[in-house]
Design a protein around this nucleic acid. Structure first.
Lengths: 189, 189
DNA sequence: ACGATAGTAAACCGATCTGTTTACTTTGAC
DNA sequence: GTCAAAGTAAACAGATCGGTTTACTATCGT
């Protein structure tokens, strides 16, 4: 992949996160990337294609970073399920935390059965799958149910931190996750 | 308040929810409202003022409807705390459910210390206050903590339902809320 | 009946939007 | 060294953006 193409995607991610998708024009993305519009349209047929490329890249890098970070929080699946929320807190504390790009995208593109919506849905499903794997390894009752609940807690902490500008939402979610995990492992003991 | 003004706000809420704030122009809002731009600018000094008026109205009507609906789910504070999620599920099931307008707004306007951000933050704080009141009435341990956790569950269910187009996220959140409330009332028993 | 308020209709402003075009230059693989 | 791909620079196009202006009309309380 060419460097210019990569630069455009990186710039697009930054600007879209900060100002929303409709709030950033193609001219600005090209300008900030240090590239002409011609070059931009050489790599992407349309703004929507650039958006999709940005989402796809975010999907890939975020999940990769997220999983690595979660796995660094402990060696047992149980520790890692809770570690999710410590990783989240670090994410929320970033100077440039603008919430989840995929949630923000759905806020602007509500029409169902579009490529953008599909990308967002897919991202969330994959995060859920990862949590479910951890839950299965942790040997909880009904790992699917537990994973869905933990995913909801993660989403809730994310938007709460975003709107209220308070990264500690992650710890509140973590405490709830602990109670949930206790309840889901008690029977197995 | 004039009818035209009200019509403009109602139209703005609908269109902003569907296409985002940057995704809808003043011309379109005026046109759909059956009103000229002159009239629009007679009632609102700028697009941002219209956005703020729309947010303010949504804040008022949503919280009002929400509280009434929650109180209709049961007579005890405990029932009502859980009723939150039944009310949420009904909301998510609406044909025209586009997620929480305030979350969506923050996704487009990230700059802190702006009127729009303040409106969103305020809305969330007021919802939290309401939940906290119910928690206090329900005589749980640490009602603040419980309320924060329930608010996070509600936010999480909202965005999950929005992105995944699955209103049942509300029931998953409700089940987690039940576990949380059990844990928070056990000691008091 | 008068005058302010709220309204219509439509042109206009400069800026920005997505996307294209023309003309020319750099770069890198074979 | 050549030739195509990738690049620059900049103008252009038609639409739409937020917002203003002009000219005129309907409504309504006093």
């Amino acid at each position: 992949m060419s460097k210019k193409r990569q630069q455009l995607i990186d710039t697009a991610i930054e600007l879209f996160n900060e100002h929303g998708f409709h709030g950033v024009g193609i001219d600005r993305i090209a300008e900030v990337s240090g590239v002409t519009k011609k070059t931009l349209y050489h790599h992407f047929r349309s703004k929507e294609e650039l958006i999709l490329a940005a989402l796809k890249q975010k999907d890939s890098t975020f999940r990769n970073d997220f999983m690595r970070a979660v796995e660094a929080t402990g060696n047992t699946p149980h520790q890692r399920l809770l570690g999710i929320f410590d990783v989240a807190q670090a994410w929320f504390s970033d100077q440039k935390f603008y919430g989840c790009m995929f949630i923000n995208a759905v806020g602007e593109y509500s029409e169902p059965d579009t490529a953008i919506r599909a990308a967002c849905k897919s991202f969330k499903q994959q995060i859920l799958s990862y949590i479910q794997e951890l839950a299965e390894q942790a040997d909880v009752d009904d790992p699917r149910r537990v994973a869905v609940a933990l995913a909801i807690l993660l989403e809730g902490a994310t938007v709460t931190a975003q709107v209220s500008q308070n990264p500690e939402a992650a710890q509140a979610a973590r405490q709830t996750a602990e109670i949930l995990l206790n309840a889901a492992t008690r029977k197995a003991a």
